[in-house]
Protein backbone atom coordinates (compact mmCIF):
# COMPACT_ATOMS: atom_id res chain seq x y z
CA UNK A 1 0.00 0.00 0.00
CA UNK A 2 1.20 3.51 -0.81
CA UNK A 3 0.08 6.63 1.00
CA UNK A 4 0.82 10.03 -0.55
CA UNK A 5 -0.11 13.27 1.21
CA UNK A 6 1.86 16.45 1.66
CA UNK A 7 0.37 16.72 5.13
CA UNK A 8 2.94 14.66 7.09
CA UNK A 9 0.44 13.91 9.88
CA UNK A 10 -1.85 12.06 7.48
CA UNK A 11 0.94 9.69 6.43
CA UNK A 12 2.09 9.25 9.98
CA UNK A 13 -1.31 8.41 11.42
CA UNK A 14 -2.60 6.33 8.50
CA UNK A 15 0.56 4.24 8.17
CA UNK A 16 0.54 3.48 11.87
CA UNK A 17 -3.11 2.32 11.79
CA UNK A 18 -2.85 0.31 8.56
CA UNK A 19 0.39 -1.31 9.62
CA UNK A 20 -1.44 -2.40 12.77
CA UNK A 21 -4.16 -3.81 10.53
CA UNK A 22 -1.43 -5.85 8.87
CA UNK A 23 -0.75 -3.95 5.66
CA UNK A 24 2.62 -3.17 4.22
CA UNK A 25 2.66 0.62 3.98
CA UNK A 26 4.95 3.19 2.32
CA UNK A 27 4.27 6.87 2.93
CA UNK A 28 5.34 9.77 0.76
CA UNK A 29 5.10 13.48 1.45
CA UNK A 30 6.67 14.44 -1.86
CA UNK A 31 4.37 13.32 -4.69
CA UNK A 32 7.18 13.51 -7.20
CA UNK A 33 9.19 10.93 -5.26
CA UNK A 34 6.06 8.79 -5.05
CA UNK A 35 5.59 9.00 -8.81
CA UNK A 36 9.16 7.90 -9.33
CA UNK A 37 8.64 5.02 -6.92
CA UNK A 38 5.56 3.97 -8.90
CA UNK A 39 7.80 3.40 -11.92
CA UNK A 40 9.88 0.87 -9.96
CA UNK A 41 7.32 -0.91 -7.79
CA UNK A 42 3.79 -2.11 -8.17
CA UNK A 43 1.36 -1.29 -5.39
CA UNK A 44 -2.02 -2.88 -4.89
CA UNK A 45 -3.60 0.02 -3.05
CA UNK A 46 -2.71 3.71 -3.30
CA UNK A 47 -4.14 6.41 -1.05
CA UNK A 48 -3.33 9.85 -2.42
CA UNK A 49 -4.13 13.46 -1.68
CA UNK A 50 -5.47 15.43 -4.63
CA UNK A 51 -4.00 18.91 -4.30
CA UNK A 52 -0.25 18.67 -4.01
CA UNK A 53 2.79 20.53 -5.26
CA UNK A 54 4.50 19.32 -8.43
CA UNK A 55 2.56 16.13 -9.18
CA UNK A 56 -1.09 16.16 -8.17
CA UNK A 57 -3.35 13.24 -7.24
CA UNK A 58 -4.88 12.88 -10.69
CA UNK A 59 -1.40 12.46 -12.19
CA UNK A 60 -0.54 9.85 -9.57
CA UNK A 61 -3.80 8.06 -10.43
CA UNK A 62 -2.99 8.13 -14.15
CA UNK A 63 0.56 6.87 -13.63
CA UNK A 64 -0.55 4.09 -11.30
CA UNK A 65 -3.41 2.89 -13.55
CA UNK A 66 -1.13 2.93 -16.52
CA UNK A 67 1.38 0.79 -14.67
CA UNK A 68 -1.15 -1.56 -13.12
CA UNK A 69 -4.75 -1.44 -14.36
CA UNK A 70 -5.95 -3.40 -11.33
CA UNK A 71 -4.55 -0.91 -8.85
CA UNK A 72 -7.07 0.46 -6.33
CA UNK A 73 -6.54 4.19 -5.99
CA UNK A 74 -8.34 6.01 -3.20
CA UNK A 75 -8.31 9.77 -3.43
CA UNK A 76 -8.56 11.88 -0.32
CA UNK A 77 -8.97 15.61 -0.62
CA UNK A 78 -9.57 18.69 1.47
CA UNK A 79 -11.95 20.13 -1.04
CA UNK A 80 -13.78 17.83 -3.37
CA UNK A 81 -15.82 19.09 -6.23
CA UNK A 82 -18.19 16.99 -8.27
CA UNK A 83 -16.21 17.51 -11.47
CA UNK A 84 -12.93 16.45 -9.85
CA UNK A 85 -14.56 13.35 -8.41
CA UNK A 86 -16.11 12.47 -11.78
CA UNK A 87 -12.77 12.93 -13.48
CA UNK A 88 -11.08 10.72 -10.92
CA UNK A 89 -13.61 7.91 -11.34
CA UNK A 90 -13.42 8.19 -15.09
CA UNK A 91 -9.69 7.72 -14.82
CA UNK A 92 -10.08 4.60 -12.73
CA UNK A 93 -10.15 5.76 -9.10
CA UNK A 94 -11.56 3.20 -6.67
CA UNK A 95 -12.90 5.75 -4.18
CA UNK A 96 -13.08 9.50 -3.53
CA UNK A 97 -13.05 10.52 0.13
CA UNK A 98 -13.38 14.05 1.38
CA UNK A 99 -11.38 15.39 4.33
CA UNK A 100 -11.97 15.36 7.21
CA UNK A 101 -12.86 11.71 7.25
CA UNK A 102 -13.12 9.07 9.96
CA UNK A 103 -10.39 6.46 9.96
CA UNK A 104 -13.09 3.80 10.02
CA UNK A 105 -14.55 5.20 6.80
CA UNK A 106 -11.26 4.73 5.02
CA UNK A 107 -10.70 1.36 6.59
CA UNK A 108 -14.03 0.10 5.13
CA UNK A 109 -13.01 1.28 1.66
CA UNK A 110 -9.60 -0.37 1.97
CA UNK A 111 -11.19 -3.63 3.07
CA UNK A 112 -13.53 -3.53 0.10
CA UNK A 113 -10.59 -2.95 -2.22
CA UNK A 114 -8.64 -5.77 -0.63
CA UNK A 115 -11.59 -8.10 -1.06
CA UNK A 116 -11.82 -7.27 -4.75
CA UNK A 117 -8.11 -7.87 -5.17
CA UNK A 118 -8.35 -11.24 -3.42
CA UNK A 119 -11.41 -12.30 -5.44
CA UNK A 120 -9.71 -11.37 -8.62
CA UNK A 121 -6.49 -13.22 -7.90
CA UNK A 122 -8.24 -16.36 -6.57
CA UNK A 123 -10.94 -16.39 -9.25
Amino acid sequence: MMIIDDEPIVGRRLSRMFERDGYEVETFIDSEAAARELENRTYEIIITDLKMQNVDGIRILETAVEKNPDVKVIIITGFGRKETAKEAFRKGAFAFIIKPFRFEELRQVIRKAEKEIRNFSSG
Binding site: E7, I9, V10, R13, L14, R16, M17, K51, I76, T77, G78, F79, R81, I98, K99, P100, F101, R102, F103, E104
Partner: peptide, 25 residues
Protein backbone atom coordinates in the same frame (compact mmCIF):
# COMPACT_ATOMS: atom_id res chain seq x y z
CA UNK B 1 -14.55 29.16 -0.28
CA UNK B 2 -12.77 26.28 -1.99
CA UNK B 3 -9.44 27.55 -0.70
CA UNK B 4 -10.81 27.99 2.80
CA UNK B 5 -12.36 24.54 2.62
CA UNK B 6 -9.06 23.02 1.60
CA UNK B 7 -7.04 24.96 4.11
CA UNK B 8 -9.48 24.24 6.93
CA UNK B 9 -10.21 20.61 6.08
CA UNK B 10 -6.55 19.65 6.10
CA UNK B 11 -5.84 20.66 9.71
CA UNK B 12 -9.28 19.34 10.70
CA UNK B 13 -8.46 16.06 9.04
CA UNK B 14 -5.13 15.98 10.81
CA UNK B 15 -6.76 16.69 14.16
CA UNK B 16 -9.45 14.10 13.59
CA UNK B 17 -6.98 11.45 12.45
CA UNK B 18 -4.73 12.16 15.46
CA UNK B 19 -7.64 12.09 17.85
CA UNK B 20 -8.83 8.79 16.37
CA UNK B 21 -5.37 7.34 16.73
CA UNK B 22 -5.28 8.41 20.33
CA UNK B 23 -8.71 6.96 20.95
CA UNK B 24 -7.96 3.63 19.32
CA UNK B 25 -4.44 3.30 20.70
Amino acid sequence: VSGVAHEMNNPLNNISLTAETMKEE
